[in-house]
Design a binder for these strands. Structure first.
Lengths: 212, 212, 212, 212
DNA sequence: AATGAATGAGGATTCATTCAT
DNA sequence: GATGAATGAATCCTCATTCAT
């Protein structure tokens, strides 16, 4: 009996496809759509270049699937958040921390998004799964804001969408600009200490703003 | 001994170089370093491709000069800001608005920065003019924070660097993600109305946070 | 010791092979040897690509079998012609008409032949069934010419081979160049009317020439 | 003084383009559109592959230009024909011989035409120079037919277009099928003797048909 | 006999860069 | 300083063919 059980045929193909996607996320995140190399992706995936085309059709379609994948992944983690029985302020702090930490753990999300924005969302615009991109986090923000306002601990004029964008921005920007900020301020902002400090600050900002 | 006087290059050569830089900013902003085409830059500049190499040496060196140029441009406008005789809250609001509006007016700044971050600031890291990148805005933030704290209208625990980063993030993120946000929320966030609303919100967030 | 009796292959296998051949005729006729796609042939045949290799060995061998097949098919129809009891002139007219109509009904014959000529008959040259390619039509022409000459209704100096080639040429060329002729003369030469007119003309030419 | 005078710049580019076209005619004639290799064309032309794209844009556009070129070349030679002061029969014989000889001297014309027909004249169909393809030979045929009829040496019912097609077919088919005919009849039809015999026969056929 | 996955060589096309004038 | 032509290395993609069930 051995562990290296031969995968059933379709499973094996599925695995190849998954490895290619994984490698593509990496390559695209590091080099962008134009800078990424199809050969490199295949090589890193330990797959034949042809398979990339069998499974994804073209570099651009692969790009789209990568985008959809990282979006879906973040949405999934957001969906798993449960702040329903936390005090509004603690709940909001949790959301802020989650976002910052997720972004720091997944810098590829930031890079890919930025690239797609450079392309004016041309690819996402054609996605049929675009609706799946809608953020559960926005709903959570909305709900927590309402609870906080009702409880009198939050100001009543905070708009959910703006607040959501701000919340996301606080984490996203820091990660997105880690390198240039570090260069300009000659600091290692990616250290856990720096990240922790940033996290505390972001919570302060949002809760400070929301004070009634 | 001779002073290394700047040679009075022919006006025409200077103009050609300027046109190439201009075209490069555009091309790089729209397509990134890898996606940009040297032919296109030369064509748009109405210059011979060879001139690009005469003036800039290589595509990568041109990229670096573009980065330095857009950074310098923003710093220049920041330096022109004068909030010294404004009330701290009005001064801070002014800084927030300035940053958002500048970013909105210069989306290329955002795109280029994001690209450079993807490259882990490899090019800026080698820049000898990096010190010129240091932000006057940060000094302004520091000074206004101090004035506000002294006057008792701002909290005393706001760190200048964190506050500066937050201030910049609020504008930058919005512009950087205009397209994907628009796609996801099916809205035209680039309208003046939307931008105005965002501006008001950002001011609210920062001033709300800074309340003692 | 066993006789190498032809194994009664499964009916199913036989059918698969036939479908592949059919699909190959089409694909080769439309795209030529180099332009034809093995994947497409298999797909059109509703067969697995592997089967193509099992039954035919390679794309080139398949090409040869296709050639032999279409040649054999024409020869078969020629063999079925019976003009023995027709008056020489009517017999010759019949041969002309047959050839033109057959060619029009089987444009793939023309295309495949042309391709093979481009290849300088490299594949047919290696065929072991080449003798099967000898044309019964030539024998018919020879015989009718002889009868006509004997009867005094045909000139006596018409050489059978040249006459055969001319007869074939009259139909073949028209079909072979249908598209470019149509383009150049801006006419729809593939209509039944046009084909009928051409048929009448060809008969006129050959019988006119054969007048004593 | 040396003969290898350096060509003025644009002349040199022109020469490169011409060499590429020349090489392309050869490669396309021998291998067809799909079978031709761009690398091979460039190599044979002694040119860099890139130049092919600079001058022609793509393989398909090069194919079109090749077609237009060979057509134009034949039309030019046809235009140079002068049979106005020959006796109708001699004039017609001259046209037949010219066509057969031209075709034999330019087998690439036949191959290319056949290929384009296989593609259903897709490329010529998009040509803007299609009108240039109209055949002066057709006009000559028309004129000679009229003169012959008027002089009472030709039948009066010969249609010019049909007669033209027949005339062209007689030569074209022979050249087009030289290889398969040789294979089937085990003869060397490309010898001068065979060609001469074919020429005599073709003249006989046409003049025989045209007898009143 | 049949299948789906995989392969590696090769194909058209594009790129940043340099040469010759 | 400026130009048009040229270059060779890559880049994306495709193909006929084979492997492992």
């Amino acid at each position: 009996m051995t562990d290296t059980v031969e995968l059933p045929r379709s499973k094996r193909a599925e695995a190849t496809k998954a490895r290619i996607l994984e490698a593509a996320i990496n390559e695209f995140a590091n080099h962008g759509l134009a800078g990424a190399r199809v050969d490199e992706i295949a090589a890193r995936a330990g797959a034949n270049k042809r398979m990339l085309y069998v499974h994804f059709g073209s570099k651009e379609e692969l790009w789209l699937q990568v985008l959809e994948h990282v979006y879906a992944h973040k949405r999934e983690e957001e969906r798993a958040l449960d702040v329903g029985n936390l005090h509004p302020q603690e709940a909001m702090a949790r959301l802020v921390r989650f976002n910052l930490r997720y972004t720091a753990r997944h810098p590829e999300f930031v890079t890919l998004l930025n690239q797609e924005n450079m392309h004016q969302a041309r690819y996402l615009g054609t996605s049929e799964r675009v609706q799946a991109l809608y953020s559960p986090l926005l709903d959570l923000v909305r709900e927590v804001l309402a609870r906080g306002a009702a409880a009198g601990v939050f100001r009543r004029d905070a708009e959910p969408l703006q607040t959501y964008v701000t919340l996301v921005a606080l984490g996203h920007f820091y990660v997105a600009n880690l390198h240039t900020l570090s260069a300009v301020f000659q600091a290692r902002l990616s250290s856990e200490a720096a990240l922790g400090a940033r996290e505390a600050h972001c919570v302060e900002v949002l809760l400070g703003y929301l004070r009634p």
